[in-house]
């Protein structure tokens, strides 16, 4: 996790540090399914996944991938920022053996009251560079000499002077 991140430290176009997970194994998938109590057979039953659903292998859970994205953002925003919004699409499948790399790039910075509302393009690429989970996020950051982002976060704080 970054120590402290401030609006003063970032510019449009800046890349976020990568978050790398994997290679993903069937043990990762099974453990995640157990924690989520998600017993969909495409996550643990190879024969069902490949013969019934005609998938290439058992699938890495989508909810696991979304967590990587959130971990990626919260690690970057550190203790000063607030990961406010996140959206993404599941466009690609991931299977055991894949290594997933969370990436991000700042696309816009809007100054709102004493804070910065930062738009970030994000995604998860596999070891071949294929993008499977493209999305976007909104992170609220304070200025170095400004008030902290309030906890709990209230969007109304963005409209204060």
């Amino acid at each position: 996790m970054s120590d402290d991140l401030y609006l003063d430290d970032i510019v449009v176009g800046q890349e976020l540090p990568h978050t790398i997970k994997g290679p993903m194994s069937t043990a990762h998938i099974m453990r995640w399914s157990a924690a989520m109590e998600n017993w969909h057979r495409i996550h643990y039953d190879w024969r069902f996944a490949t013969e019934h659903d005609r998938l290439p292998d058992v699938m890495v859970n989508g909810s696991w991938k979304q967590h990587i994205l959130i971990q990626h953002l919260t690690n970057w925003a550190g203790e000063t920022g607030w990961v406010w919004k996140l959206n993404f699409q599941f466009r690609g499948m991931n299977v055991p053996g894949d290594t997933l790399t969370g990436w991000g790039r700042i696309t816009a910075i809007e100054e709102r009251g004493p804070y910065g509302v930062v738009s970030v393009e994000i995604g998860l690429r596999n070891q071949n560079g294929d993008e499977g989970t493209p999305g976007a996020a909104t992170v609220v950051l304070p200025r170095r000499d400004g008030p902290p982002v309030p906890y709990p976060f209230n969007p109304a704080c963005l409209d204060t002077i």
Partner: peptide, 13 residues
């Protein structure tokens, strides 16, 4: 069914 898109808003810890 299979998930195609997802969006979160994290409002409070």
């Amino acid at each position: 069914n299979i998930r195609a898109k997802q969006a979160f808003q994290f409002i409070a810890p």
